[in-house]
Amino acid sequence: MSGSDQGKGSDVLDAQDRARFEQLVLPHLDAAFNLARWLLKSRADCEDVAQEAMLRAYRFFRGFHGGDARAWLLQIVRNTCYTWLEKNRPVELMTEFDEELHPQPSTSPEALAIAGDNRERLSRALETLPPRFREVLVLRELEGCSYKEIAAITAIPIGTVMSALARARQRLQRALTHSSPQEASREL
């Protein structure tokens, strides 16, 4: 993340900032929580991290100069999550994002529909993906972000968002239909 987006966090915030933050940023708390929950895979940890990210966003709030408040907040949430992961679960971040994408037979829509119908199975499959695949899927499919927003939040170039999603979707299909949870986690 570029430091300039967040600005300096040292200003003392006043009631006016508080009201603006309430109006612009706080409505996106659910989005912040959902992203943290899927990045950290644990409800207990993600409450703490979401809270920390929200207060951090507040400290940096004078650096927010309008525009897409949700993307601005989610960028901070994501960074806070990665900092937390580096400290607490460094192994998870070691997967290469740009691994070779192997051509594979397409899964039939019917098989996928059956596999995807089970919430537990879907949730587990998503959790077996490396964080960098998981986050683009969560941002796109659960949060409804555009490619532009995904690029801003995850700091990947906008030109590669499409291929990142292609890879993530392929991994998810594979996790859903081709492997048991054990196999999928060994792959990591």
Partner: peptide
């Protein structure tokens, strides 16, 4: 077809988790 099916599973799955009131 497969991607559309996967998408609709993801969106209907209720995987989105809202922030608890206590956290707010």
């Amino acid at each position: 077809g497969a991607e559309e099916s996967l998408r609709s599973s993801l969106q209907r799955s209720g995987l989105y988790e809202n922030a608890p009131v206590a956290l707010r």
